[in-house]
């Protein structure tokens, strides 16, 4: 039975992938979409796609970046399906609403978490890739298809916006919660 060893290898490779990466994929998904339940769904969808396309993965070291890429696309697809034709402004407003809709907002450093979720996607995505994924500016630029100078600017502004949001909240302290 020549097929069996192959199946076992593939299965074992997949299990290793899941055990090594599902936690960090979940974190990345959570901060992309802002919702625990949806994040879990995104991870599952990502891993099922990875399982189907496992042959495309040549080396184990590349697995992490590959999974991040699949997850990012799954998330983008979800938005295409959920919010047809909404412009970025709506999306930003939506993100700000979502920032307050999750039990995680009760967790530690709720202000920073809320500020993170309220950050427009074009700032949030590169920041997540850098902080959670350990991507360099060049890698982020490749992944997002923009110039690495532009990535630098977005990363700079992302942090600036977070700090602004934090100081506004601590000055007025009249938040929703």
């Amino acid at each position: 039975m020549p097929v069996l060893p192959f199946v076992n290898t593939r299965q074992r490779q997949f299990e290793a992938l899941v055990r090594a990466h599902s936690g960090e994929l979940y974190r990345y998904a959570y901060w992309l979409c802002g919702q625990a339940a949806l994040a879990e769904d995104l991870v599952q969808e990502t891993l099922l796609r990875a399982w189907k396309g496992l042959e495309a993965l040549r080396e184990a070291e590349a697995a992490r970046g590959w999974l991040y890429t699949i997850l990012r696309r799954e998330h983008a697809r979800l938005y295409e399906r959920v919010r047809p034709g909404l412009d970025e402004l709506d999306e930003e407003q939506h993100a700000a609403e979502m920032a307050w809709s999750d039990p995680e907002r009760q967790g530690s450093d709720a202000e920073l978490r809320a500020a993170m979720l309220a950050l427009p996607p074009k700032y949030r995505e590169p920041l997540l890739m850098q902080v959670l994924g350990g991507y360099s500016c060049e890698e982020i630029a490749d992944e997002l298809g923009i110039k690495s100078n532009a990535v630098m600017v977005q990363l700079f502004r992302a942090r600036q916006k977070l700090k602004e949001a934090l100081s506004e909240r601590s000055e007025t302290n009249h938040g929703l919660s």
């Binding site: 599902s22 599952q44 450093d109």
Partner: peptide, 26 residues
């Protein structure tokens, strides 16, 4: 200091037995 704070804030805990459930789903 801010980076440490940011990393801590982003470190949400994955749901329990996440990997097992993902493997089961597959």
């Amino acid at each position: 200091q801010f980076e440490r704070r940011l990393a801590d804030a982003l470190a949400v805990t994955p749901p329990p037995r996440l990997a097992e459930r993902m493997l089961l789903a597959q």
